[in-house]
Nucleic acid binder design. Structure first.
Lengths: 238, 238
DNA sequence: CCTAGTTACGTACAGCGTACGTAGTGCGCT
DNA sequence: AGCGCACTACGTACGCTGTACGTAACTAGG
């Protein structure tokens, strides 16, 4: 009988298998992949212990041999998508490399729209996350600042990517399992915003609305924000 | 019979009351306040329709007259804490004003540790959020850049605040309703991280670990990040 | 070989969001 | 004045959730 711990525990510190008894039928990677598959196809709310167990072809409670709490399943999921990062050879141009990393993170989030909702809750230091962190530090080798500043830059970039991308894809995740489309929902929300701005209660916001002509190009807004952050850490610009 | 809509809907576009029938017993603010009280005291997971209704002293299903879906309750909560922002008179120093806004946002999140977990899911444009946005634009009046750039700066700052603060308070929210303390959980996680770094698999990460002496001052890390972002938008520095 | 530790998993329980139906209330219209 | 309807109120019920607990099968170490 495994039992849940009465003391804090990091799932990554648990050995994947322990000699005695029947061989486990699945690896952590199998389980994470199944959960990710479900979340991608049916949304994060469809990721239940029962559903994941069924996807794996085992009983619900068998899953608890591998994943003590549901929260740990979330950690497996976040770490699993960390493996999708291409850990390329650093080019020596830290700005270009970090831009590439950020663009890749954004692409991963677009593939897995449930990531932003999960991020704030998990302790994202599984093996793949650590590998990615190490990769970023390798890219930042040419940048001549203290290591602490480098990790701050990495955190800041990740934050910017998460924030900007979360806004884009929130509606996608929300309208899943709703009887209407992303476009319909966005139209209703925009109409509401327009009506509020039209009341005259927010003059500066109204001016900002008027100023923009045509739809905003989210991609270039995103890239501009990244450049700004990189500028802020570039010794050549100060 | 009210019924849930089969078409997208913004709760803020719904009128709070409509002439006919008995007078509603609560306002949206009452409901939001009750939900916030529960989330603050018992954590976000304790915010159930039943629980909030009980806090208000009404039947569970009566709540659905005011809040068509639980997701809308979340929107009410996020907007309610927007009212905690002090909308001070802009001083003319946009950097100082925006720093103050950011510090206040951080303080609000520290008071309501469930905010980061909720943020990515909600459409945060209720009346208080709009008022805050307008306030930020007022603070940025002296900054001579296009309105689009200003809203980008606001979004970026909010993102940085959310990311940095979410990391600080994630454990607080996680250990709620767990039989151990924040300190115990952090100790276990740090021990795990130390063991991973000690394997030698992450040399650059190990070096970064070695470099830091003593505990990190999260507050100054946060403030440094803000300054960097502001630098990136300051025309006087380019 | 035995036994202790493990895997496997069925059952059960408390709690969730919410669909639906019914009863009561009071504004607006005729 | 009074009818009718829109609205509030809320009890019941359904299908779902995470997971505690108990039992049976299996296998490596002593």
């Amino acid at each position: 009988m495994a039992g849940r711990a009465a003391v804090p525990e990091v799932i990554w510190a648990r050995p994947e298998r322990t000699g005695r008894g029947p061989k486990p039928a699945f690896t952590r990677a199998d389980i994470a992949a199944a959960a990710v598959r479900i979340a991608d196809a049916e949304g994060l709310d469809a990721v239940s212990m029962r559903h994941v167990a069924a996807e794996l072809g085992c009983g619900t409670m068998s899953l608890y041999n591998y994943v003590p709490r549901k929260e740990d399943l979330y950690e497996l999921m976040i770490d699993a998508i960390g493996a999708e990062h291409e850990m390329f050879e650093p080019t020596g141009d830290w700005r270009a490399d970090m831009l590439r990393n950020a663009e890749e993170t954004r692409a991963i989030m677009r593939r897995h729209t449930w990531v932003p909702r999960l991020m704030p809750g998990v302790f994202a230091f599984g093996p793949n996350s650590l590998r990615y962190l190490e990769h970023c530090l390798a890219c930042l080798e040419p940048l001549d600042v203290p290591a602490g500043t480098k990790t701050e830059l990495i955190a800041l970039l990740n934050g910017v990517v998460t924030t900007y991308t979360a806004n884009d894809i929130a509606t996608v995740e929300r309208t899943r399992s709703m009887p209407w489309t992303v476009e319909e929902e966005n139209a209703v929300r925009m109409a509401y915003l327009g009506s509020q701005v039209a009341t005259g209660a927010y003059p500066r916001l109204a001016a900002a609305f008027m100023e923009q002509s045509g739809p905003v190009d989210l991609e270039s807004v995103f890239r501009r924000a990244l450049e700004r952050v990189l500028d802020a850490y570039d010794p050549d610009l100060r």
